[in-house]
Every structure is written in C-alpha cells, then in structure tokens.
Amino acid sequence: MKLMFDPIKSKNVTQNYIIYGAVAIILSLLQISLLNLIEVKGITPDLLLILVVWITLAEGQFTGLFFGFGIGLLFDFITLDVIGTNALTKTIAAFFVGYFYKEGYVSERLGSFFFVLITLVTAVIHNLIYYIFYIRLSDLNYLDFFIRYGLATSAYTGVFAIIAMLLNIPRKQINR
C-alpha cells in the first residue's frame, strides 16, 4: 500500500508555512513603516508580491493560491485598502506564477534571473488588475496612470526581486 502521509515531510511543510507566514507579517510591517525611505516619486516596490511569487515557485500553484489570497488579505487590512482588492490581485498573480512551477527545479528557478523575469511579468499583470479597482472611483485616465505608475512600480518590484534572487543563491550552491 502506498504511504499517503509522510510525517517527516509533513513536519517540514508545516515549518515552511509558518516561516512564510512570519515573513509575510514582517514584510507587511516593513512595507508600511520603512519603505517610504526608498520611495521614488511616490513609487515603492511591492515586497509582498515578490513573496507570493517566491512561495508559488517554491511550493506550487495550489499552495501559492492560498498564500496569495492570505497575504493579499493581510495587506488590505493593514494598508486600509478596500478589503479584497489585494487578495484578488495576489491570488491571480499566484495562479499565473503557478504555471512556471517545476518540481525538482525549485532552487534553480528561485536563484536565477528567471525569478526576476517572472516577478516583473507578474507585477505588470498584478498592477493591470489592481489599477482597475484603484481608478474606478476617480476621474483618472486608466491607461495614462498605468503607464506612469503601474509600469514604474512593476520595474521597481523587479529590482527588489534581484535581492530575493541573490538570497537564494547560497542555498542553490549548498544543494549542489
């Protein structure tokens, strides 16, 4: 009979999930308290989106969806945004990233420019959807605003994804 429940694997998975949760809380606090120091013309990188991309590429689409939703909801709550906006956009982001998950190639993907590229594309998709909700109550021109801010925010997020990528390089080397 095939063993359905592996206690060692399950313990590691739970440990990983707790770490992801803790990192999400820390990054949320960083995002709203310290990130204004590196703000450029009102634009800041989306650290939590990088985390969602990371988790999805590391754990797969199914797990990524839950973390995307949970992290988005947490972010909506602490940033006083309309509840559900970030939950929706980050869930969609995780769904998209999920197609690039490949078992056995996790470290290679997280520790290479592939991760940066995926983060950049995901950030563009995330912002395309986010700004629909952002603009809906205003007189702002969607396309104009997205080109000015959405793309800039995506690029800035991509730059920060390089740091996340560099963090994973030692792990990749150890694994080899």
Partner: peptide, 19 residues
C-alpha cells in the same frame, strides 16, 4: 487548482463589494 482559484476570486470580489 482551478476550483480553488475560482472560489478565492469569488470570495475576494464579495469582500470588495462589501467595504
């Protein structure tokens, strides 16, 4: 994955319409 995705999107949209 698809069922979860649809469910989470529905929950998110419901939350958006609420507050």
């Amino acid at each position: 994955e698809y069922f979860t995705f649809v469910a989470l999107v529905i929950i998110s949209l419901s939350l958006i319409s609420m507050g």
